[in-house]
Amino acid sequence: MEMNIAELKKGGFLKQLQKDYFAVRLRVAGGNLTLEQVETIHQVAKKYGKGYIHLTTRQGMEIPFIHFEHIDAVREELRAGGVELGVCGGTVRGVMACQGSYMCPHGHVDAKALSRQIDEQFFAAPVPGKFKISVAGCNRSCAKPQENDLGFGGVLRPALREKDCISCGLCADLCPVAAITMQDGYPLLSREKCIACGECVTACPSGAWREGEAGVRVWAGGRIGRDPKLGEVAISFMPITKIPAAIEASLAFFREHGRSKERFGKVIERIGWEKYREAMERATKKDA
């Protein structure tokens, strides 16, 4: 039996305890699968698997109990039905997303669409260790951006159209950091205090608070694993158009400084947050 385990692993086949059996990891972007893909997965699992599917903790999917003899057939049949294989090892993994502004009333950015774009551009890119990315629509962080090597969360800088204000004071009541005070019946915003969570815009009953500028906050170095740690803010506000540049810069930093199988956060801690933030700054400040 000739098998290159490393090659199989890269291609999304995870060796099981059970002799000659593999779990097949599938490529899922932003936690969405089309019905056509679900149908394909169903058929393949029924034909070659053991009657069930495994859902991973990161919106991924795996078909367990694929015999090594069926590996090529499984790959081909999945592909023909629009399903690609996932990856393992030192690569950019499946990109997670919450519902975001497409569906969720709290969303400031379209997390699903962004995760698809990130997946298209960076999925399976080689790096020293695993690299996980997640996108959340707002700072409620349902897609857990802080648990990923790189995480993005929608943020919103508010702008006021005073003539629409009905002086209810709700924004001042709800602001989590007391950045708004009511002055002569109208809200007064402290830009220094404001964390761009967008709650005031979401809740304002008259539409007086509206979108000034939407963007994302970037967290880096988050991980679970053996040495769990939440990511730290690398950039507190950035336009969404800068996301590819931020990822590019992070992967380059990882490739330059990372040791084999090291987690990204460890690399940053070893080399220094200052250096990493500088690299991010340089990459994302260029032009508009």
Partner: peptide
């Protein structure tokens, strides 16, 4: 109070007043 006034507005109604 975070959700109801906002969604009424989104559905085309007008919140005239809101008092604590």
């Amino acid at each position: 109070v975070k959700n109801v006034p906002r969604s009424l507005r989104a559905e085309g109604h007008r919140v005239v007043a809101l008092e604590k």
